[in-house]
Design a protein around this nucleic acid. Structure first.
Lengths: 127, 127
DNA sequence: GTGGGTGCAAATACTTTGCAACCGA
DNA sequence: TCGGTTGCAAAGTATTTGCACCCAC
């Protein structure tokens, strides 16, 4: 890849994600960034999100519907609410089962394990 | 939902999935079923796949790119090859961490845990 | 006959891309 | 200036939907 050049738009997208506890979609990022850069385009948001993922500064979470983006790249699990679709961090440490599985599974080498939990979040339960 | 009526197309889609070890996309299902029903439409394939998911007869696996469908609905994990994108079953039993996590996580009640493993499959390693 | 199912095509949702203008180094 | 970045729009990919006709019950 070519040498990276500074861009205010990318900086803003990055800061926005770092400040959020949830995991916004590209469209949510776009709507928010547009308050600061009214002319920014959705294409630029997508391009910068992909770039940041490649750089390892954020991670992409593929769930039902639109992809979500997470500035916390340290390994952790996610909780997906089956009702409202929100994605929450599960920061509780769990032993990574990848090693254990590698010992008896021979279809390929497992490099990473992601756990996805499903249920109804407390917010939805109230309503 | 209304009362289900028999359809040869749905039957065929279901049998096709039951016979496969891998996890075809809707488009792969469409291509194969078309050998038997040359006039079947992609819309019909999608409609029936959704219906079968609702009925709990198959499950949908959301990964990068197109969704995949799996006739094995018993809880198990998946291995996703980072190179060719293929999805393989990991039938190795692991204690479900959901219970453990529920004890110390209070954002909602976890009903299910899905583990996704990532790496390079043996087939890709050979090439 | 009735209502669910189908084929077809158009529409929708999400994401990527081509291109000329713009801007950081 | 040079080449990475942007805005815009068009294209691309995956999935859903409206509708007239068909077929299981």
């Amino acid at each position: 890849m070519a040498v990276l050049k500074y861009s205010r738009q990318r900086e803003s997208i990055k800061n926005y994600l770092y400040d959020r506890e949830d995991h916004p979609t590209a469209d949510m990022v776009y709507s928010s960034i547009r308050e600061q850069f009214p002319n920014i385009s959705l294409g630029t948001v997508y391009r910068n999100l992909s770039l940041l993922v490649e750089l390892g500064e954020i991670q992409k979470i593929t769930t039902e519907g639109a992809d979500r983006f997470d500035a916390r790249v340290a390994p952790h699990s996610h909780f997906v609410c089956r009702q409202c679709g929100s994605v929450l961090d599960v920061m509780i440490p769990l032993d990574n089962p990848a090693e254990e599985v590698n010992r008896c599974w021979d279809q390929g080498e497992i490099e990473e394990c992601r756990m996805n939990f499903y249920g109804i979040c407390n917010h939805c339960k109230k309503n």
